[in-house]
Design a protein around this nucleic acid. Structure first.
Length: 398
DNA sequence: ATAGCCTTGAGT
DNA sequence: ACTCAAGGCTAT
């Protein structure tokens, strides 16, 4: 228990970088930002920024601009609705389970990191370039991406259990509007223990991929915050097109994938061409959305776990357009095969299903890309520099 | 106004 | 009985 607590308290406040004192208003923050957020919301304070509304907020400067500090509080995901209108003290609120899952997730990430460092030291090389991988923090906030407005008190946290025979790994999903949540899984106190034990039997490559994985909770929070902001804007200026909204969501996801690719273990050895990105948009938008949902459903039925998902993502994002990438792809595919063989009793069945999913993602991604390019040529794509840049890069290559 | 410490109380 | 995230208090 003490160990669990330490994992959490080692972190830095996402607002100012000060020492975290616990979960406050939706996430881990320091004591001072907790107090600041509380005062601001309780007293309905209105601040004004005398600069450009982009003041740096850190431990030293956090007092200088309360406007930007509060914006940052909202941006990183502090929840207005966690401040009690009736000022009742003590007790618990609806975020309790979310905190618990977040703690478990962080604990598992830490176990992974430790196991992978040990494993790096013990084993030499699944390829000749193999070297101990530095520990890289998973926080990848791009603060310039989202304009800052208060979130709405609408989303309730849900659980997305990824289970497969021996492993039980849960991730938090606050947005369940696209895919339905999986069956409830009881909170297994010993899951971390089991997880660590089983880790030793997992293919090393799978461990590495998993360790570099995207912080889904953060990505979802960002997208949620964005959608919530949009709701405020719609009230004033009317709703934007679904397509424009999806471009924004795709852009957020894209940034996250780029960050993930940068962290990925082979990235430094590659001249990476990020190209095949799977997101939902289509020949007609509705058709592509439907195909995307079908794909999500397929993943759900198969109960694809994080390990498998990491491998599939790697195989999707990196195009086998050079002999080296091709060989790495083969290794990842091999690791996936090894993993599925040792976690299921279905022989090749599961692996074949996963490859089918991969193929679906690729074809969906091609359709989405064509559609986006068409929309771009007809001047309908909002100014999403990264999306368009990627599209241009892809088109100029092929 | 800030931020560190204290009190409270539902959930476990 | 214990935990820990709410609100409260108060020196700065």
């Amino acid at each position: 228990m003490e160990f669990m607590h330490n994992v959490v308290l080692e972190e830095l406040c996402p607002v100012c970088g000060d020492k975290v004192s616990g979960y406050h208003y939706g996430l881990l923050t320091c004591e001072s930002c907790k107090g600041f957020f509380k005062r601001t919301v309780q007293n309905n304070k209105k601040y004004v920024c005398i600069e450009n509304q982009e003041c740096r907020i850190d431990k030293t400067y956090r007092k200088r601009c309360p406007f930007c500090r509060f914006q940052k509080c909202l941006h990183v995901g502090m929840r207005l609705e966690a401040v009690r209108a009736d000022r009742m003290r003590g007790g618990r609120n609806k975020f309790g389970p979310m905190y618990k899952r977040d703690r478990a997730l962080k604990q598992q990430r830490k176990a992974l990191t430790q196991a992978s460092v040990v494993s790096s030291n013990l084993q030499r090389g699944f390829n000749e370039h193999s070297q101990p991988v530095p520990i890289i923090p998973c926080v990848t906030a791009r603060e310039d991406l989202i304009s800052l407005q208060p979130p709405l008190p609408s989303s309730s946290p849900g659980s997305y259990p990824c289970t497969l025979s021996n492993w039980t790994i849960k991730s938090d999903h606050t947005n369940s509007s696209v895919h339905s949540p999986g069956p409830p899984v009881e909170n297994n106190i010993h899951s971390e223990e089991i997880f660590s034990t089983q880790l030793s039997r997992m293919p090393r490559l799978v461990i590495e991929l998993l360790r570099c994985d995207v912080d889904e909770l953060q990505l979802q929070q960002k997208i949620n915050v964005y959608l919530q902001q949009q709701q405020n804007i719609w009230k004033k200026h009317g709703a934007p097109s679904t397509f424009s909204l999806m471009c924004h969501m795709a852009e957020q996801t894209l940034f996250s994938i780029v960050e993930w690719a940068r962290r990925s273990i082979f990235f430094k050895q590659l001249k990476v061409e990020l190209s095949a990105i799977a997101y939902h948009a289509g020949p007609t938008l509705a058709n592509l959305v439907q195909r995307g949902q079908e794909l999500a459903q397929k993943f759900h039925i198969l109960q694809v776990d994080r390990q498998e998902f990491s491998c599939i993502k790697f195989l999707t994002v990196f195009n086998p357009d050079s002999p080296f990438i091709e060989s790495v792809q083969e290794q990842v595919q091999g690791a996936l095969l090894e993993y599925t063989l040792c976690t299921t009793s279905q022989c090749l069945g599961r692996f074949t299903h996963l490859l089918q999913c991969l193929s679906d993602i690729r074809s969906l991604s091609t359709l989405a890309e064509d559609y986006l390019w068409y929309k771009h040529l007809s001047g309908e794509v909002p100014c999403n520099s990264l999306l368009i840049e990627m599209l241009h890069a892809k088109r100029s290559c092929s």
